[in-house]
Design a binder for these strands. Structure first.
Lengths: 244, 244
DNA sequence: GTAATAGTGTCTATGAGACAATATCCG
DNA sequence: CGGATATTGTCTCATAGACACTATTAC
């Protein structure tokens, strides 16, 4: 620890945001186009430095979201994702960045704010496969955020938040398929969802009109932590071979 | 983001360490007795401020470990745990702390170093139940670390690291029981461990002498990520009731 | 009727856990 | 031999997934 005379060095602290939403049945991430150096013109996660020394980290995150993407979502729940502090990750000097994750449905179209040349929703596929390169180490941060989101669908009722107030079981299945990037058997999904106690409960609304048999409507149930969990199909690692 | 004229505020960055080991079949955590204010005389996690602005976070963690507990374990693998940055968590001002977790067997007895009045291994039970109070928000950090360790045993081969170069299946079972704080059926554990491909492999050493039938010896296998996983017995949440 | 989607039933394979039974050491 | 621990076997139950089948709408 430090003694009373020596003064510890201060460090530049930044926040970076992985904001995920569902658009047209595909998972999208919020990106901003950098308006200043370094990486001017490149796409990056929204984020920036702490505004003042006493600012709460999540407050800074909300402020940056409003400033850079004109997205003033007071209620957005931010979850700590990780810390990225390797020396050299930012050409301006030592910057330690705390990354936050938010996942929400129906987020508005972003517009470029101060210091940002642009802002848009981008399909996560293009980011994860490296087709679109991001500034700094933001690709790694984005990948960590998507993996966290996928894991959250397994054990929390988060998926219902992506549907309207009432939804069919097929609607819910589309959410899982979009985030996990796989397709699921509708019949098994149907029973699995219903067996997870308190996940969804019947709604008394009218049935949904479609081109086939109208589906029952449900709404989110009281339980936030799913039991049993909705586990992704296990993918056995390469047959028997050693790993690392 | 910031423009070129404005200078972002700097923040005091600290690291805190949750160091876990197994002693006498019980999980223990490394604590130091604070030698300076605030919380002088109280027990706390080892940790402290960054030494200089370019110091790597894990380097700072290792340095604090050496300084405060005279524990110079070069090879100790530190894993990021979480960030604790609430304003007011430290009476000296705004301090953002990055917590790291290390889990290792056979760590040496600590001795008090600079700035620490004492250092010792403490059973995690007394810390988790609040019997021993820690400085700052360190109880919360410690609890997060223990839970992370428990989860790691499920999907990684970490447990073998707590045994010697060769070990019996019962030895391995003791590790799981100590960290999880429960007891397991030896016969089911036996088969489960062997079915997780690459987890353990037979060693050709002599059998262990005990008061009963000598046990076969094994050594750690090549696989680091277990498949299938060694899941803890699921504890169904309170029967059917809503949650939160 | 057909097309399309919703919902149910059933079969099988697998894994977890309870626990009986056997094996192999010590004395 | 008896006591102790290791190792194997067997049974039962729960769950996941494949997939046949029925139900209900629009046209």
């Amino acid at each position: 620890m430090t003694d009373d005379l020596w003064t510890p060095p201060a460090v530049l602290l930044a926040v970076d945001l992985v904001i995920l939403t569902l658009r047209e049945s595909r998972l999208h991430i919020l990106l901003v186009e950098r308006g200043v150096e370094p990486y001017k013109g490149a796409w990056a996660l929204p984020g920036g430095f702490l505004g003042h020394a006493e600012e709460d980290l999540t407050a800074a995150a909300h402020r940056e979201l409003a400033e850079e993407a004109a997205m003033d979502v007071e209620s957005l729940h931010l979850e700590h994702l990780n810390v990225y502090g390797a020396p050299g990750r930012d050409p301006r000097g030592r910057v330690v960045s705390v990354a936050y994750l938010a996942i929400a449905p129906g987020l508005p179209e972003p517009t470029a704010g101060t210091d940002a040349a642009g802002a848009r929703w981008q399909s996560t596929d293009q980011v994860l496969c490296g087709e679109l390169e991001l500034a700094f180490d933001h690709q790694k941060i984005a990948a960590d955020g998507v993996e966290r989101a996928r894991a959250k669908l397994e054990r929390s009722s988060l998926a219902t938040a992506f549907c309207g107030p009432t939804f069919t079981i097929t609607d819910l299945q589309r959410v899982y398929e979009a985030v996990w990037g796989i397709s699921l058997d509708p019949r098994n999904f149907y029973r699995k969802v219903q067996k997870s106690g308190g996940f969804i409960v019947a709604a008394d609304a009218d049935r949904k009109v479609t081109s086939g048999r109208p589906a029952r409507l449900f709404k989110a149930g009281p339980r936030k932590d799913l039991y049993p969990a909705m586990l992704r199909p296990a993918q056995p690692p390469d047959t028997k071979g050693p790993e690392r």
